[in-house]
Design a binder for these strands. Structure first.
Lengths: 200, 200
DNA sequence: CTAAAAAGACTAACCAGTCAGTTTTAATAA
DNA sequence: TTATTAAAACTGACTGGTTAGTCTTTTTAG
């Protein structure tokens, strides 16, 4: 007999569950959110969840993985169209402004994930995959910018990359804790000034 | 009848429990740490804990409060001896380097606290108290630096303060996730370059 | 008609906090 | 100096509530 629902419908259900999980995790945190919370939000029964995911942790992991690939694909596509390293970094810094609210939710979950990764090799692997990709891309852009003379010649590329991500993640960390969106956006804009003053 | 142990001994027990809690919370996180974990670490029985603290959350709160006052008092004392705003900021940035390992533990707990404060007014209050003090001090130093001509005249003080703290917290956030201490220390040193390039 | 999927009551494990009984300490009495 | 006493502090088995994950039954799509 044919499967009861199509593959597309199945994927839609999975995504729907992941979005529900994002809502719960971002508002209450991972531990405080129960599987019952998630299914209530998703209008599904508890038993059903386990047709799609192995465990609560599995939901957490797939949520992060999904957001990771989504945002990376989107970003790469955009950056490929830009030639100048300076403009690439500027685009990268500002790219999330239109989605501040969504990204804020995601960052809330992401940082929690990050914190708990200390004890879980599985979580750690996913994060380092994400982190490595981001870092590699940043290093490539900054190296290129040096070569082209857009950035100072004595700039330490590894340090600059670390500073880029520290500043970025610091701003988002603050945003997660109840800052209003207007302030967040002005901080992102200021980040450009800080970083450019440093690398140029 | 006289109390069975002196006030100092009582305070010592409280502190001992808080240090045990710091160990547990910083290695496994708040939710994953059980009260049994803490008492095992502290060599005490479960029942005893409740002579000192009302609840697990109460331990969390007192731990943060203790670390907050400790570090603020220490910092204020040092900064008061320094006159130049530039030197004050430099000292502030570097002040934790000798205690990197301890501060890393504390930051792990602090960030988790921060994340959960979204739902708890009690946690929120403690954090905003800490944050406001830090921000006010930073604003005062930067304003003074502008007045004295050590920093650029068109610097936006509020923005600069936000950037200072974003960079600081971003670096520590990264440190929490398994960076080795040597890297952390070099990042702290680089933070000075970034921030000075921006405000001067 | 059949097999996948959904439902939701149920279970087993976990854990914060309690409590009744025990030990320790220091003030006081002998 | 030593014994007595009583409150404070300690102990750990226990409890009540919670929740991740299971399982049996019911529904649905093709």
């Amino acid at each position: 007999m044919a499967p009861r629902i199509s593959e597309e419908a199945k994927k839609a259900r999975r995504d729907h569950l992941l979005e529900a999980a994002l809502e719960c995790f971002s508002s209450k945190g991972y531990y405080a959110s129960t599987v019952d919370d998630i299914v209530r939000y998703a209008n599904l029964s508890k038993g059903s969840v386990y047709n799609y995911f192995e465990s609560k942790e599995d939901i957490f992991i797939h949520l992060l993985e999904k957001k990771r690939t989504e945002s990376m694909e989107h970003l790469k596509e955009k950056l490929d169209k830009i030639d100048s390293p300076t403009k690439k970094l500027q685009h990268w810094i500002h790219e999330d402004i239109p989605y501040s609210l969504n990204k804020k939710k995601f960052m809330r979950v992401h940082i929690e994930f990050w914190l708990y990764s200390a004890d879980s090799p599985k979580l750690k692997e996913i994060l380092s995959k994400r982190f490595d990709t981001m870092v590699d891309m940043t290093i490539a852009i900054i190296t290129d910018g040096k070569k082209r003379g857009e950035f100072r010649q004595d700039l330490d590329v590894e340090q600059a990359t670390a500073m880029f991500w520290s500043l970025h993640d610091g701003i988002w960390l603050h945003a997660v804790i109840g800052y209003d969106v207007k302030k967040l956006e002005s901080h992102i804009r200021e980040m450009e000034n800080v970083f450019m003053a440093y690398i140029q």
